[in-house]
Amino acid sequence: MVGSRLMRPDLQKSERLRQRIQELAGTDVGRCYQCGKCTGGCPLVEAMDFTPRQIMRLVNWGAEDEVLRCQTIWVCATCFTCTVRCPRQIKVAEVMEALRSLARREGVRSPARDILRFHRLFLAIVGRFGRLHELSLVMGYKVFTGRLFQDLGLGLQMFLRGKLSPVPERPGGARQLARIVSWWAERERKGGR
């Protein structure tokens, strides 16, 4: 909970954060009037530590550390329900996306390590094969989380229905994809330092 934390307004800091989000997401969080319509419609708010509305508020306070370190931005499924309904025309989902990008660039250690690991695994596979190989992704993820045998039955069911192809495809374009992914990984690495 943040309720008890002392906040010291720093308008320059909030202006800077809002500005960076404006550049990345093309939207001004300063317009938010805290109606909560984003949160009311968010499918995943129960898995978040701050509600989307609170994220907007924290951004407006310039609370960069908190918004880049929270679960919420990683739990967001980018379903755009918030964006299409916002009466202030703030692109809320795009703000979440911008905050994720910022968090990566700043090399912030995320509390949602499992989600992050899932994404990185995904990229590793796509960067290597050019296409997603679902079995590798699921297996890799299970190894990472140590929940190797959870969903085993489900996996078997899928296999029996021919829905898990055992061997990845690898088109020629994989090399170009690898290049794009390594552009990103390079930036990640710099951010991490």
Partner: peptide, 22 residues
């Protein structure tokens, strides 16, 4: 011919531009 992954849903979750590029 030679299509590659569009990046959904991980690429744009990590980085806006990465998502667009894939």
């Amino acid at each position: 011919d030679d299509w590659t992954c569009c990046g959904a849903s991980s690429a744009h979750s990590l980085d806006h531009r990465l998502g667009l590029a894939l």
